[in-house]
Design a protein around this nucleic acid. Structure first.
Length: 426
RNA sequence: GGAGAGGUGGCAGAGUGGUCGAAUGUACCUGACUCGAAAUCAGGCGAUAGGGCAACUUAUCCGAGGGUUCGAAUCCCUCCCUCUCCGCCA
């Protein structure tokens, strides 16, 4: 959520920055609602003050044993008038809230301008894509004989669900363990295990609700109705919301959390895309990094976090590039985002495998997460999140980059300790 | 699933219809005493929003949401959560 004071004081600039990310903000509607809100709020508060003072008078009169009937008569109309004002005010407040909750974050000044992924800017590359002396297969063709089982996944749960068997299943587990070990042992994140089912207000906090309900899986508890909860689409949601509704001490920052969790995404609206293989799944695992940061240090933290994600790819010796997303391609809550794209030889291209964002105070404002700054004032924290990394896509990258002509796959050296020393999948 | 007890400020904990955003203790901050510290004493110390250049001021908030009332932390309803005992269970 944006700072409403920024909208009040600097509306034109905010509208322009939102336009840069392709969002048309209804400034006229906002201005009208704000004017209504101001009038109604002042009037309502005046009436409330009057009611309070009269009620006090009644209390005092009664305690002295005086007759209160005259005072009661005086405020006969007050109640109805107040109720009307209060409900009008809350209606306007709700409209304003609805408006604001649907507005994406403002892009940081350093974010390249652009409309879509074609305008993203490559920041750097690491590693050299391997040259094959045979035709490289994609992960479906390599993986199926080794234990990637799309048919059974589909039989159990439908399209975009995959079953893993044997060494492939173990490789998947090894990747998650390896990533978690690197992030905790080398980068200072606290290992966290979180609920996968969360309450709706948690999703408001990180920005998935109210706008992106269609991307989520909903669950109902057996034997109960009316209490819809949601499967997390990333553990960013549960990790970031651990600090909702709290005032932190400055010295607690930064809080660095990591978790390995499944992620559930309905992928509504992506029907034609990436239907083959396990690039785009309804369920995939991810090791997530989250930082709760002092605003002054959040951009340094973002660069650092990108490095934490890169470290995984470097240790796995997978070529990748770092891309700065343009204004038009960033997610709803992000002020700035770097994507890591790993080399996939079969597609002859780089594909997203991590996304690291600084959300500044956007989520903190929704979650009411503050800290006591040096001046002793409560100030909103900045929140950052990044994948370190998406496990399923990393599995794809390993299979494709480490394949041999005979259909076997070399186990990257960094993963062998997690595979009981196994060097090759056959 | 059954029975019971609770949810109040950072923490502990009083308050059961009126001047209560809320006693008291503790933590924390400031000052005094001290070479310094501890102890002691004095003062301060919640959040959010509105109005005002500001000093300041108004409103709202006692798990959440409704209701009764001139007036609700306090009474009523619904829900959520925590604890104890029993049952069940990985």
């Amino acid at each position: 959520m944006l700072d409403i004071n920024q909208l009040r004081n600097d509306l034109d600039a905010v509208v322009a920055r939102l336009a840069a990310r392709g969002f048309a903000f209804d400034a006229a509607n906002f201005t009208t609602l704000e004017a209504e809100r101001k009038t109604l709020q002042t009037a309502t508060q005046d009436l409330q003050a009057k009611r309070n003072s009269v009620s006090k008078q009644i209390g005092m009169a009664k305690s002295k044993g005086e007759d209160v009937a005259p005072i009661l008569a005086e405020v006969e109309n007050l109640k109805g008038e107040l109720a009307a004002n209060e409900s009008a005010l809350s209606a306007v407040q709700n409209k304003l809230d609805d408006l604001l909750l649907g507005v994406p974050n403002l892009p940081h000044d350093s974010v390249p301008a652009g409309n879509d992924e074609k305008d993203n800017v490559e920041v750097r590359r690491w590693g050299t894509p391997r040259t094959f002396d045979f035709t490289a297969k994609d992960h479906v063709d390599i993986g199926t004989p080794l234990g990637l089982d799309f048919e059974t996944g589909a039989k159990l749960s439908g399209a975009r669900f995959t079953l893993l068997r044997g060494h492939i299943a173990r490789l998947h587990r090894a990747l998650a363990q390896f990533m978690l070990d690197v992030q905790t042992n080398e980068h200072g994140y606290s290992e966290t295990y979180t609920p996968y089912i969360v309450n709706p207000e948690v999703l408001f906090g990180t920005g998935q609700l109210p706008k992106f309900a269609d991307d989520m899986f909903r669950v109902e508890r057996g034997g109960e109705d009316g209490h819809t909860q949601y499967l997390i689409s990333t553990s960013e949601i549960s990790l970031t919301n651990t600090v909702r509704d709290s005032i932190l001490k400055a010295e607690e920052l930064p809080i660095k959390l990591t978790a390995h969790s499944p992620c559930f995404r309905s992928e509504a609206g992506s029907y034609g895309r990436d239907v083959r293989g396990m690039i785009r799944q309804h369920q995939f695992d991810k090791v997530e990094m989250v930082q709760i940061a002092n605003p002054e240090k959040s951009y340094a933290a973002l660069e650092e976090m990108v490095g934490h994600a890169e470290a995984i790819l470097q240790k796995l010796e997978l070529p990748y590039r770092v891309v700065s997303l343009c204004t038009g391609d960033m997610g709803f809550s992000a002020a700035k985002t770097y994507d890591l794209e790993v080399w996939l030889p079969a597609q002859n291209t780089y594909r997203e495998i991590s996304s690291c964002s600084n959300c500044e105070a956007f989520q903190a404002r929704r979650m009411q997460t503050r800290f006591k700054n040096e001046a002793g004032k409560n100030e909103l924290v900045h929140t950052l999140n990044g994948s370190g990394l998406a496990v399923g896509r990393t599995l794809v990258a390993v299979l494709e980059n480490y394949q041999n002509a005979d259909g076997s796959v070399i186990v990257p050296a960094a993963l062998r300790p997690y595979m009981g020393g196994l060097e090759k999948l056959v």
